[in-house]
Amino acid sequence: MASGKEIRTKIKSIQNTQKITRAMEMVAASKMRKAQERMAASRPYADKMRNVIHHLAFAHPEYKHPYLLERTEVKRVGYIIVSSDRGLCGGLNNNLFRDVMRDMQAWKAKGVDSSVCTIGAKAAAFFRRFANIKAKISHLGDTPGVNDLIGTVKVMLDAYDAGEIDRLYLVFNEFVNTMTQKPTIEQMLPAMPAEEDKKRLGYHWDYIYEPDAKTVLDGLLVRYIESLVYQGVVENGACEMAARMVAMKAASDNAGNLIDELALAYNKARQAAITQELSEIVAGAAAV
């Protein structure tokens, strides 16, 4: 059995670890609240934008924007992968990456390669080994702005325009609630309205475009994609904090259990030492 002193140092070191995990848990909890607020604040824009895009799909414009047209042949697909910058958040990133890898392999079986654009340091580190990274950005901090994302999104949109990729997916963790984050792969391009929506509003109408349809739609669709990506980034941020909070809570609890067990072992060892000393003294006295 380990000596008393050894056990005591072990307890001490676990206590120190527990302090750290507990602090991280509290930091993550407060950051999560802010991230959730940000998520809620950006939702109206995304909803309104989706409405406009849906209206647009019902209108019968004289100019069909390439982002709204299905491409018959798919030769290469693109992914914008949103991840966290830091670890210690449970299986959040790994679950997401596993889903992406599965999707990529499914495409590969059909002879379709993929290009990747990563947001966040973890995705960059992971996909460097497996995929062709076209653009990356990381260290957006706790308050990502739309401005930070414009560059990376543009790289992928340019690739789409040039026909280098024929589909564009957004990959991020969807925030269901504090305990549940759902890895999501969402098709952004071509932008397809849902089938049931198509049945509504059957009559013919079109917008007045100023100055002309092409200029308006170009600007609008780029903003649409940016808003989707921004929403994904904000949502993934909330997921990161929630996952970290849960992971750190589990770590603190485990540390507590370990300390309890070690304290028991320490007391047993101490008692055994006392008993041994006593019996030695008694035996010594009897011998005299």
Binding site: S42, Y45, K48, G145, V146, S227
Partner: peptide, 8 residues
């Protein structure tokens, strides 16, 4: 309705 990407 006036919205920006970061808030309503």
């Amino acid at each position: 309705d006036i919205v920006s990407a970061e808030s309503e």
